[in-house]
Write a protein that binds this DNA or RNA. Sequence first.
DNA 1: AAGTCGTGCAACCGCCTGCCC
DNA 2: GGGGCAGGCGGTTGCACGACT
Length: 337
Amino acid sequence: MGRAPCCDKANVKKGPWSPEEDSKLKEYIEKNGTGGNWISLPQKAGLKRCGKSCRLRWLNYLRPNIKHGEFSSEEDRIICALFATIGSRWSIIAGQLPGRTDNDVKNYWNTKLKKKLMVMGLVPHPNHRNSYSRKPSSQSLFSSNASYQSSNTLYQSSVPPSSFANNFHSFSPLYMTGTTPPSTLDFSSVMPNENPSSSSVTTDNSLLMNPSAYYPAKDNILMFGSEESPNSSSDGIKQEAVIGFQNCFPGTNHNNEVERSINDDQGFVATGYSIQGNDQVIGNNFWSEKLNEDFGETSLRYDLEDVKKLIIHTGSDFESPDSVNVSKAGEQAVYYF
DNA sequence: AAGTCGTGCAACCGCCTGCCC
DNA sequence: GGGGCAGGCGGTTGCACGACT
């Protein structure tokens, strides 16, 4: 038996809202509130609409302080960073942008921002055949218990939403903002800096302050990304590669230290790292463990230079055979093992 | 001027989750 | 503990409108 419909479909109006309906709804809610029950609200308000439709109209259009119009470059940067961190969790992303709705952010991403990033080579085109990939191995990508948090709810799931996985794979290069401090976002490595004075966004937002809390636990992913530097050499060799590990929020803070993410359950280390030149990048989860071994469990922060040395020093010793020379500007790679 | 195409966005659909009984 | 319901969310659709031919 299927579930009962939320309203009588035959007797509800669908399609665009008229100004009269808008004013009825607005007037009612301003006077009485939603009463915590959207289903019964349309009847009380004298509307022939589904409760869900009323809720959507109110949240996306009628409620106070809704911001319409162009997204600023600051908002662009926040959306990109959060998308890279948590995927298509539009409501959470919208929660970081005062006056914006999840629908707005979603539409903006799908119609403009994604294309913009594709053009820039920061998001692989769907038909792009030149990115590195490797089959998942014995350990399933999402085999471990995932833990990810929305604005007010902590979810525990063995299988994160497939949409998240897809997005995570597709746009993972944005994970590698090797210059992303926890409280100050600097997207200069992934976004063109249209306004140099605003290359960083200072925020005291809890999500940005503690991104690891929102980071889904996924094992055995190694991500590579590269972008073409303005002074890229003529042979097309990339000038920068940034790598990140699952369970980590890759980034450095303003002191050029690699942040360690505290994950009580699994004790992972958050690492972020940007290398210059034509470096060969080798790594896997052992990298995190090596950091602990070499720099101590108690240390909350690792100096970026030490991480660089460690990568160079221990790279060939990694147990994983994975070894990638990310050589072409603008290419990205995602490795699973 | 008319037809076609592309884009943006509001709205809908259906699934998932939490809450309540 | 489990079933049902409502809210919330992300994906998708469809329409309006402008650009282009």
